[in-house]
Design a protein around this nucleic acid. Structure first.
Lengths: 192, 192
DNA sequence: GTCTATAATACGATAGAC
DNA sequence: GTCTATCGTATTATAGAC
């Protein structure tokens, strides 16, 4: 059973996670977080000494969530193609959030990539966990040598579609984009 | 001949333009701008009442620069395919900057798209000017009906490649990506 | 028009009572 | 472990001298 302290910490991380996604890391203040998490003002420093540390905790939590999700997919879908299409599916399922706030891992990396190498290196782990998993799927599909490149291409396609769909507030472009990706994946699977 | 005031204003816009690109809009302070532009502290308020106003001036200047560039391309390249490939070429030519700070228009839209609809609408104009021009090229190439969609696909491809290349600090991915786009464009031109 | 001094606020962070 | 009070700094922005 979680202690009160653990529950409070969890509430802070959840609040920060949402705010970092919907407002961006830099535009989110400690005040925003404590208000959202309903924690007394200076109390937050008991849990996180700095804002950077809070970001690390948020990224760690996201990584754990993603890790669990990928293991679920591995269990439910035996075929690489089905797994890859399941990955594409979350893009389509997340349409409203993506149109509002962009890709959680993409926008964070774009924000921190500008001039904060240390924090960017942390955020990169969000790409790494998908990249590693996608690479394995392409390898299992019959492309062991091209797997890493194909994984990066899939990530790039997703990122690009999300950015343009957000700029033009166009859910249709996101839908057509994901369908086009699926056609590409099916073709790859067929000629493997 | 430009007055001293006009030259100062230009210097402020240039400095803000660079800083917004390399640090991001929110992480750039007025102090950063006045130091970079070598303008006395509070003096900046004579030129720009608010930071938003400064951003609008930066975007306006970028739009004018892009407009001139596109007209140059129209003059130098009579064929739509050559024009489209020239567009792709600036991506490749900008490799070092893109790896450091991402796409100037993409990252700005991602940053402002989170929760600032008014400013995001301003930044969207940077996409619009390219989108309009690209659409015309695809139409002239022989795809009047699909032109808008093809333009968005080209923009999305570029954005995705830049994001992933920046995350992985991989100039090779950017190079291979632009070559792949050119193959796609040449195929489109061939079967038009 | 140009610049200095400074206000007013919000920020991340600390000290210390309970 | 929890919370209040507050610090020092950096922020956007203003007032007013030159």
């Amino acid at each position: 059973m979680p202690t009160k302290s653990e529950k409070t910490q969890r509430r802070i991380i959840d609040a920060a996670n949402q705010l970092f996604y919907h407002k961006g890391y830099h535009r989110t203040s400690f005040t925003d977080v404590v208000e959202e998490a309903d924690v007394p003002r200076g109390n937050i420093y008991y849990y996180f000494k700095t804002k950077d540390e809070m970001l690390r905790a948020v990224i760690k939590q996201r990584l754990e969530t993603i890790s669990v999700m990928l293991k679920e997919w591995d269990k439910h879908y035996p075929q690489p193609l089905d797994r890859l299409e399941r990955f594409v599916q979350i893009m389509y399922d997340s349409t409203p959030a993506l149109l509002h706030s962009g890709c959680p891992m993409g926008s964070l990396n774009v924000e921190l990539g500008k001039d904060q190498p240390e924090l960017k290196a942390e955020a990169k782990a969000l790409f790494d966990i998908f990249h590693l998993w996608l690479t394995r799927q392409f390898a299992d599909m019959g492309y062991p040598d091209e797997a890493r490149e194909l994984s990066m291409q899939l990530l790039a396609r997703g990122q690009g579609i999300i950015v343009v769909a957000q700029v033009y507030q166009d859910p249709g472009f996101l839908e057509r984009g994901t369908k086009e990706i699926n056609r590409w994946l099916e073709e790859l699977a067929r000629y493997a």
